[in-house]
């Protein structure tokens, strides 16, 4: 697999960094070389943050995202800032519950109502898992088995079951979004 760059963005408290680590871990699980970086503010909650994941079957030189193949946007501010940075022919996957999309040439945009699906599950904090799962099901950048396995590993015990439910929800949401 050639180098792929995925950028997950939103604001502090949404679990953006957790999702980044999860994708990186899934990459390792899938036997890929993986680099995962993050940018956030000093505040634990509310400030803009993003996580970048680079996946490749070759050793990774520069480990940060330069120009993403995929942008996963979990807030309007993040969408406004990062959606247009995606490569031509790339994809923007956004939370259709929170983001009003714009027009971007030569980019496929897909909405996933992750926040509302998570709320329906009874825990809006799992929107990140719904979002990432749906995005990976859509792009195929990492095997879903690897992602699920990584999720089980990375989830704290008390959230594991809920996170795995969110994973299933994300799989279903991807199918719905592509229909």
């Amino acid at each position: 697999m050639p180098r792929r760059e995925i950028l997950i963005c939103g604001f502090g408290g949404q679990g953006v960094i957790f999702a980044g680590e999860l994708l990186g871990r899934a990459g390792i699980r899938a036997g890929l070389e993986t680099g995962q970086s993050a940018s956030y503010g000093s505040e634990a909650r509310g400030s803009a943050c993003h996580a970048g994941v680079v996946l490749s079957s070759e050793p990774i030189g520069y480990p940060k995202v330069r120009r993403p193949d995929v942008v996963i946007a979990m807030s309007q501010a993040a969408y406004d800032r990062f959606a247009s940075t995606v490569k031509p022919g790339g994809r923007v996957i956004f939370d259709s519950h929170l983001v009003k999309r714009g027009e971007i040439d030569d980019v496929e945009q897909i909405g996933v109502p992750a926040a509302s699906l998570a709320t329906r599950l009874g825990r809006k904090g799992v929107a990140n898992v719904v979002m990432l799962t749906a995005a990976m099901e859509i792009t195929g950048d990492v095997s879903m088995d690897a992602l699920r396995e990584a999720l089980g590993e990375q989830s704290p015990e008390k959230y594991r079951e809920m996170n795995l439910k969110a994973f299933d929800e994300g799989m279903a949401a991807a199918k719905a979004a592509l229909e």
Binding site: G24, I28, T34, G35, Q36, S37, A38, I60, P63, K64
Partner: peptide, 9 residues
């Protein structure tokens, strides 16, 4: 920080 907070294999 770029290395400190980077995750890799």
């Amino acid at each position: 920080e770029s290395i400190g907070h980077l995750r890799e294999k």
